[in-house]
Amino acid sequence: MLLNVDQSNPELESISSLQITTKVNNNKMASKKIRTAQIRLMSSHQEVYEPCDDSFALVDALLADCSNLLKHCPALCMEIGCGSGYVITSLALMLGQEGLGVNYIATDINPHAVSVTRETLNAHGVDAELIITDIASGLEKRLAGLVDVIVVNPPYVPTPEDEVGADGITASWAGGENGRCVIDRILPVADHLLSEKGWLYMVTLTANNPSEICLQMREKGYASRIVIQRSTEEESLHIIKFWRDSDIEVFKNEKVMTEKSVPARLMDYVLTQFPLFSFWRSSDSDNKLIQRNPVHTDLDAKDLLRIQFHPVSHSLQSVRYENFDLWGTLGIMSFCYKCS
């Protein structure tokens, strides 16, 4: 059973504000108890990318998700492209070290960057295994399926192709066409290295077409959500978190069922469940599944609430909300809640 619901319901409008409140609280909590790398302790080198808005946004995303990360109990965490070491150092400060059963690996193609990362880690009293290599070359065979958390601030700036992977600092930002050249090489490697419960956090720029990246990852079975969206003078950054989600397969295969109205009482029940929903982004490859709300205002036309019931027991199976404009440039925003 499938239905579309009028978006003017005040309960629905409160979702985004509720989510934001939670994030703010998390940040406050995090800033009280949890340390990140300090700029005054950072090492530097003229050929190494210094922590900038993108690095700060990635660390802020990790902070915002810190309580989840701590519960996740990762054994192996990895940074691909560690640069100055700001991110891997912050992660190690957040999640702890060997005594807590957490170990870190960081790679960079730039030998100067790896040396700077070593100094930054030392200055903060934390440790990680460092390797000078291209993405994860040399690790792919034996590290497959073992990494629980991967963080990446890739070279995402659109540039001529011949600047990609160049010597020195250029490699830290040169991303080729649409800034996707290195990103598109990293994604399959990350998929290969991540454990069953593995999470990937990645910085993207609007020019990288993040919604397409999410779709690509969805085809590999990953759900995703934007942890932080931040616009600076020069760029609009999205920090996206990916995780394997068996539900993705379910939605891929699901068929559109007939639309029927649902008793108001049941609708009320559904709406009371909203605080439980987690946000995640996705889009259907099968256009038939995307049902736009037929109600007349512009806003309504962008939203869809799709509720699925069990065909026999009529119990609530899943709720799915999609908004085609909420994230502006990103296209479709949606979240999904599956009842057990």
């Binding site: 690996i105 295994e129 390797i131 290599t133 070359s137 040399g138 690790l139 792919e140 065979k141 034996r142």
Partner: peptide, 13 residues
């Protein structure tokens, strides 16, 4: 470099 890392590294030639 720890032996943990050594155990995860292969020649990539």
């Amino acid at each position: 470099m720890r032996l943990l890392t050594h155990n995860m590294l292969s020649s990539n030639i």
